[in-house]
Computed example of a mutant assay.
Amino acid sequence: MTVAESLPVTVGRRRLYVQLGITLVALAAAGGMLAAHRATLDSGTDRLADADGEWLVLACLAALATWVCAAVAQQGAVVEQLPKGRLVAVQFAAGAANHLLPAGAGAAVVNLRFLTRCGLSTRSSATALAVKAAVGGIVRCVLGVALLVASPGTVPLSVRIPHVLVLLPVAAGAAVLAVAISGRLGRVVSRALADVRDVHRCRARACALWGGSVAFALLHAGVVVAVVHAIGLGLPTSRVVMAYLVASGAAALLPTPGGLGSLDAALAVGLTAAGAPGPAAVSAVLGYRLLTGWLPMLPGLLVLALLARRSAL
């Protein structure tokens, strides 16, 4: 192997080591926080054990529907028709794999292998995943802004102003980056935009992409809302939804497996800011995690193994 050939491998390994290092640090910090707040965690667990069963069933149904919505959004991100049953199964398995690798890499790898097995090129598959991820981020931002417009009291003014001040330099940096794109990177972006235009030429696929992404975000927020009602918290639904949207966005900044630690802390802080007592906020986070991550973990890994055995991945 020449020096030129070995350089990408070295860079890839270095990036992997950095991601794993950040993941370990984040998980260690999360473990330290849990140990420091053991009494609050125990109280939250007890409260969740006495939760309303009907609301928990509703939360379970919302959690199950999230995988269907993820499948709809993934279908909308590609022009080719994908096998529906396997597509939903892959999203379920990808959710489990997402808790094993940092920064959503598990779900990306599973979906990438599935799309290539379905006949898509590696470039088209990667573009489809990028389009789906970008639309998911845009949807969360739009939902947050729409919620603030529809219900201005959702977030106090003193909290909204710093967010605006932070978004201004971010928007300016994005504009500078867009202007700076040129050469080979520009050609890659042009090809990706061409794929995006191909998807949006079909109204049904565009509706599937955006509708599935919107439903996915709202159903995850619905799981939190149902758990909050199950444990008897009288928080306004708009504040709970906003807490989830902000927490999911903040968790994306830390590359932990499945947002472990980052999403938990951000959601607990968001619910506390919305008016929930500390132990009750912990209960809500535990319930959300239980239904969307921990309980589906083993079945998801079994489905992943089955898909791999049948050469679907």
Rank of each mutant, 00 (worst) to 15 (best):
Gly85Arg: 15
Ala70Thr: 02
Leu168Gly: 13
Leu100Pro: 03
Ala73Met: 12
Val139Trp: 06
Gly119Glu: 04
Gln74Cys: 04
Val68Leu: 13
Ser151Val: 15
Val135Leu: 06
Cys141His: 09
Gly119His: 09
Ala107His: 10
Lys132Asn: 13
Ala103His: 08
Val139Met: 12
Ala146Met: 14
Val164Lys: 03
Leu101Asp: 08
Ala77Pro: 08
Gly119Trp: 12
Ala97Asp: 02
Val139Phe: 08
Gly95Glu: 02
Asn98Tyr: 10
Val72Ala: 04
Val131Tyr: 02
Val131Asn: 02
Thr122Cys: 10
Ala171Val: 03
Ala105Arg: 09
Ala97Pro: 10
Gly137Pro: 02
Lys132Trp: 06
Val78Lys: 05
Leu82Trp: 15
Ala71Tyr: 05
Leu129Thr: 07
Val109Glu: 09
Pro102Trp: 07
Ala134Leu: 15
Ala93Glu: 08
Cys118Leu: 04
Arg123Met: 07
Thr66Asn: 11
Pro102Asn: 01
Val110Thr: 08
Ala94Ile: 06
Gly136Met: 13
Arg123Glu: 14
Val135Ile: 15
Val110Leu: 07
Cys118Asn: 08
Thr66Ile: 04
Arg86Phe: 08
Leu82Thr: 07
Ser151Lys: 00
Leu112Pro: 09
Gln75Tyr: 06
Ala96Ile: 11
Gly153Ala: 14
Ala89Val: 02
Val68Asn: 05
Trp67Phe: 09
Glu80Arg: 14
Lys132Met: 14
Lys132Arg: 15
Phe92Trp: 12
Val88Leu: 05
Val90Thr: 13
Cys118His: 01
Ala171Ile: 05
His163Ile: 08
Val149Ile: 15
Leu64Pro: 13
Val72Ile: 15
Val135Asn: 02
Leu87Cys: 05
Ala107Ile: 05
Val139Ile: 14
Ile161Gly: 11
Ala134Ile: 14
Val78Met: 04
Val90Gln: 06
Ile138Pro: 00
Thr66Ser: 13
Leu129Trp: 11
Gln81Leu: 10
Ala96His: 11
Ala73Arg: 04
Ile161Lys: 07
Asn98Ser: 09
Ala150Cys: 14
Gly106Thr: 04
Val90Tyr: 04
Trp67Met: 05
Leu101Met: 10
Pro152Met: 05
Val68Ala: 08
Gln74Pro: 01
Arg86Leu: 07
Val149Ser: 11
Pro102Ala: 00
Ser125Tyr: 04
Leu120Ile: 11
Leu101Val: 04
Gly106Leu: 04
Val68Asp: 01
Gly136Glu: 10
Leu129Ile: 14
Ala71Cys: 10
Cys141Asn: 07
Ser125Gln: 01
Val90Asp: 02
Thr122Pro: 05
